[in-house]
Amino acid sequence: MKNIILIGFMGVGKGSVAREMVKQADVVAIDTDDIIESMENRTIKKIFATEGEKYFRDIEAKVAKWLEKSVEDTLISTGGGFYKVKNLKKIGTVVFLDSPFDKIYERIINHPKAQNKLKKRPLFQDIDKARELYEERYPQYKNVADITIDVTDKSVEKIVKEILKKVKL
């Protein structure tokens, strides 16, 4: 099995889907944002605040190179902008979790830990800018994806079943 890479806009549910896939498919899962926070010994929010987005994207590129060379048979959950790394297709099969912006925002604000969810997403601090970013990224997500899964109003269990049908595990 090649790696499976989950991409999509921040808050679409990549982490939740990864955790459920671990249960259903007995796969190992890693998260690129968690790797970056471990490498930097600070949160994504602090990295953005002190170093800026370019610095963060440079770290993502380093993580992508490491994934390509060192990781196999793994489910990789990514940050919202990870799809831009140059070697994405060399890392594995790219699965785009697709949902309209308003549904993503609704999912976040209706979450029991909504304040934490919003706080840890630096690019979601201004809703209009977040929507603009979504509209800019959406066609790019579709373009790089090998598989697109519509996650709108579906349970995490159903999303995982759809992914497992389309990806040879």
Rank of each mutant, 00 (worst) to 15 (best):
K129R: 04
S155D: 14
K23Y: 04
I108P: 04
E162N: 11
S77A: 10
I59Q: 13
L88Y: 10
E162Y: 14
V27N: 10
R131F: 14
E136P: 09
N3E: 03
K119F: 15
P139D: 11
A18L: 13
D153W: 11
M1L: 08
D98H: 02
Y83V: 00
V85A: 15
L75V: 13
E37K: 02
D146L: 01
S155Q: 06
I91Y: 12
F101K: 07
M1Y: 01
K65C: 11
S38E: 04
R107M: 00
I36P: 07
M1R: 00
M21G: 14
G81D: 07
D128W: 07
P112A: 05
Q115P: 10
V94E: 00
F82K: 07
S38Q: 15
I147K: 04
V27E: 13
K62W: 08
I159K: 05
I104E: 00
I59H: 01
V12T: 05
A64E: 11
E68T: 02
F82P: 09
T32W: 15
S16I: 03
T152K: 00
F124V: 12
E136Q: 04
I5W: 02
I108S: 01
Y138H: 10
E136R: 03
T152Q: 03
D34T: 08
Y83K: 01
V160M: 09
K103G: 10
I44N: 05
I7L: 11
V94C: 00
K120A: 00
G92T: 07
T50A: 10
P122Y: 04
F9C: 12
D73R: 13
Q24N: 09
E157S: 02
I59L: 12
I76E: 05
G80I: 15
R57C: 06
Q24S: 04
D128M: 10
S99Q: 09
R131N: 03
L88S: 01
